[in-house]
């Protein structure tokens, strides 16, 4: 079964990455990032069971904590940008260039 879980994890990760690349709405992009993190967590949990070691789960737990903090700050940034630019599109924030 390990293989199945890992393949699922990889699929979810790839889908999340594609979403990051395709979507323009910053919030949706952010959701896709969360999906990628979740895919990783699944892999951690799977490996934890595979090798019989609880530390994989501990790491997954820490990933969740960090993801929570990241979401809080990230969304605050999105709100701030939206307030000043009236837009949540990641393509509109493109002043830092050549």
């Amino acid at each position: 079964m390990t293989t199945h879980y890992l393949v699922l994890s990889g699929l979810l990760f790839a889908i999340g990455a594609m979403g990051v690349l395709i979507r323009r709405n910053a919030i949706v992009v952010f959701m896709c990032v969360e999906l990628m993190l979740n895919a990783c967590n699944l892999a951690f949990v799977t490996f934890s069971r595979q090798v019989g070691n609880l530390e994989g789960q501990i790491i997954a737990f820490f990933v969740m904590v960090v993801a929570a903090a990241e979401v809080v700050v990230g969304l605050a940034i999105i709100v701030t940008i939206f307030r000043t630019r009236r837009s949540a599109s990641v393509d509109d924030a493109n002043l830092l260039k050549y």
Binding site: L21, L95, K97
Partner: peptide, 17 residues
């Protein structure tokens, strides 16, 4: 060469990916 720096975060993300 600097034209590569488009300022679009998605382009950068694509190259990273």
């Amino acid at each position: 060469l600097r034209r590569i720096q488009t300022g679009f975060a998605r382009t950068y993300a694509l190259s990273i990916f």
